[in-house]
């Protein structure tokens, strides 16, 4: 398992190779996997190239993340990818969203150092899956015309987070929250869930399986990836901002 203070490749991470002491510099050999396409060449990006804008892409990154269906926050040419796995029912994810994420956006995404890729990792209950499917439907709806609405919806859901099993994440309640988010059509989201729910759930299942291959066992979880150098590090849990700050610098300079 990769530590935050070191970097490793995707293959090393898949093999569960551990790293290194804090401040250490063990870096495994390059290992771009066959079939991975170079990232950023594709597709459907917004016209903005800098700042905290949301983008979509159908490319697959050198780390093996298929960007299709995932909101990407930040400049598409940012040197560091942060893959962010979360579950809307996870209180630790909410802690990250409220305490750390805004600073990361301000200090790393907006200046163009980092782009965030949101990946659903629902595993706590059926409601987690419901929320994850709804997330993908909301993104499908807004990604072309008004992608910034996704973050409004995403934040609204985390702000409304209640106790697991309390029913706050039922489809009905989530759609009610959705109806309160300007620029998102809750009825259309419901229709998307009805018509494409099965297909989207299969995509999410594939994402969850891939996350487990990376050794992810809880949420939130993050892989920081330097696309050019093909080096990555992993952070788990809602760690303080300075931990992300130093990990991003380390991966950027890898």
């Amino acid at each position: 398992m990769a530590g935050p203070d070191s970097s490793t490749t995707r293959r090393a991470m898949l093999a569960g190779m551990g790293t290194v002491v804090a401040g250490g510099g063990i870096v495994y050999g390059a290992s771009r996997l066959e079939g991975d396409s170079a990232d950023g060449s594709a597709s459907n990006e917004s016209n903005e190239s800098n700042g905290a804008q949301l983008h979509s892409s159908t490319a697959t990154t050198g780390f093996g993340i298929d960007l299709g269906g995932h909101p990407i926050l930040g400049a598409m040419d940012a040197p560091v990818d942060v893959y962010y796995w979360s579950d809307y029912q996870c209180p630790f994810c909410r802690r990250f969203e409220q305490n750390t994420f805004p600073q990361l956006v301000e200090n790393h995404v907006r200046p163009g150092t980092v782009r965030y890729v949101f990946i659903q990792y629902p595993y706590l209950s059926e409601s987690s899956t419901t929320a994850a499917i709804m997330d993908r439907c909301v993104w499908r709806q807004v990604r072309d015309a008004d992608p910034g609405r996704y973050l409004d919806w995403h934040s609204a859901i985390f702000d409304a987070q209640g106790t697991k099993g309390s029913g706050w994440a039922s489809r009905e309640n989530l759609l009610e929250i959705t109806a309160g988010v300007e620029g998102v059509d809750a009825d259309a989201v419901g229709t998307c869930m009805d018509e494409h729910g099965t297909e989207i759930e299969a995509e999410i299942d594939a994402d969850v399986q891939q996350a487990r291959q990376f050794g992810i066992r809880g949420s939130p979880a993050f892989v920081l990836y330097n696309r050019e150098a093909d080096r990555a590090g992993k952070l788990v849990g809602a760690q303080p901002y300075d931990r992300f700050d130093s990990a991003i610098d380390r991966v950027k300079d890898a």
């Binding site: 788990v236 849990g237 760690q239 931990r243």
Partner: peptide, 27 residues
Amino acid sequence: SFPTYSMQMLAAGPGYLDDAVVALTAN
């Protein structure tokens, strides 16, 4: 309750012990 998180925090320095205990208590 979150071993990988705790290990990363403590590996970063003993000063993170209280952060980790408080955060995981809240969690």
